[in-house]
Structures are given as C-alpha cells and as structure tokens.
Design a protein around this nucleic acid. Structure first.
Lengths: 118, 118
DNA sequence: CAGCATATACCGATCATCGGCATATACGGC
DNA sequence: GCCGTATATGCCGATGATCGGTATATGCTG
C-alpha cells in the first residue's frame, strides 16, 4: 500500500475529517458526529464518504489506525493523524486563511473607480 | 437559463474565479493569469475548467457579462460579480476562516493528555 | 516559419462525494 | 414482541467539477 504521489487539492469533507482527528484519535462514527457539530449541522458526512475518505487518507499516509475497541459488541476503529497528516493539515489551514483574506481584501476594494488592485 | 437551486459546496478553482472577479471585471484569460498570480503559480486553471466554471456561475446568477471588447481582432468577454455572487463569496470567506481557525485550534491542543477538546 | 502568448470553446476521463443499501447490536417506547 | 432510532462499518452506482487535451484564430518574436 504505497502512498500516492498526487498532491491533489483537498475538498471540504476531507479537510473536516482531518480536523476531526487533529486533537485526538476518534473512530469513524464519532468523526461523522464531530464534523456535524463543527459545521453546525451543515455538513453531514455520508457513511460512504467517510469510510472512503478514511481509506484514502490512510493510503496517503495522513492518518493511521490508533487502536481498536469493542463496545457493546460493536467494533470501534480509532484513527489518528500522522506527522505527515499534521503538516498537511497545517499547510491547508494556512492556504485557507490566505485565500479567504485575499478574497475579503478584494471585496473591500470592489467598485472603487480608477483604483488599481494588487 | 434558470438559476440552479442547489447550494453545492464550492471547490477551490471556483472560489478563485469568484475572487478574481471580486474587485474588478475581467475576461476569461485574464482570470486564468490572475488566479495563477494569486496562488503563486500553484493553481493554473485549464481552459476547460475556467469556461465551464464561468458558464456555471453565470447560470447560477453569481456572475454576469460586464461587456465585450475586441482587442487585436480577438474577443474579450468581461465578467463581473453580481450582488448574489458578492454575498456568496463573502459567505465562503467567512466559512473558510472559521474552518481554518478551528483546525488550527485543534492542532494546538494536539497530544495534550487528559485534556478534553471542545 | 516555428513557437509562444492570447482568447474562447468543446470533449472524454478521472475521482471525490453523494445517496442509498446492507449488516449488526442496543435501547426506548408502545 | 415489535418498531424506530442510534451506533458502527462497509459496499455500490450515479453525479458533477475538474483535468488534460484538442481545435480554432490572430499577433508577436526569434
């Protein structure tokens, strides 16, 4: 299971999954709930999206299995960020901040006649 | 050409196209260059991506044709943000800031044993 | 005249996400 | 006892934005 070489742009659900695992390891279902809480219910990850994302992030080396527990005869597989995942998430947050700040700046200079924009 | 009702999550190239048009109207090719400059060459929009995005954003009512010019016998079609587009971009920037801040906050509380996270 | 920049536009392929379904167990209400 | 919901993982087909390439022109430069 070699890590993929592509540095494809990260979509929102994937970013939120990494965010959910940033502070502490969590199992899949807990991630779904956490993402819903984080986004005030706006993003409700489908099971298909979540487990596909976990597999992909794992094969990319951004997360790894932390441990497995059985609670009430149900399996809980906990995932945690790897060092690489931590760096990637930090890079993503920096990028988001930069782009958001730039967009805000441009929105402010909007409709200012005869004014050049950077 | 009815505006689509879906409020689908916005991807990075689309966000950057809106950002490019936020301050002043620009034609397609200028948007490609602007996005490349904004992202320090990281994002180089393909023609297919750009014009498809412009069509989609137009049918969604987020942008509209500003004017057309012919320079050196080549057509330049300028697009501008609509009021709806401006609101949407502002909402997107707010969302990006919130998510980036949240992710940073979680990265900071990382690996702090026995500590609950919000 | 070959190559590159400008400028718009179409096309098939890729792939993350969506939406739904399957499989189990536990719990609460009726 | 049964139904619906919550918990928990997983598979599968469809969707759609993006990618990569090509087409079509013109102008400029080497």
């Amino acid at each position: 299971m070699l890590p993929r070489m592509t540095e494809a742009p990260m979509r929102e659900p994937t970013f939120l999954v990494l965010t959910a695992l940033a502070a502490t390891p969590q199992h899949g279902y807990a991630v779904i709930e956490d993402v819903a809480r984080m986004t005030d219910g706006r993003v409700r990850l489908r099971a298909g999206t979540l487990y596909a994302a976990l597999d992909r992030l794992r094969s990319d080396g951004l997360i790894e299995v932390d441990r497995e527990e059985v609670v009430q005869s149900r399996l809980r597989r906990y995932y945690r960020l790897t060092g690489v995942g931590e760096q990637r998430l930090a890079a993503e947050t920096a990028r988001l901040h930069r782009q958001a700040t730039l967009a805000e700046s441009r929105l402010r200079t909007r409709r200012t006649p005869g004014e050049a924009f950077s």
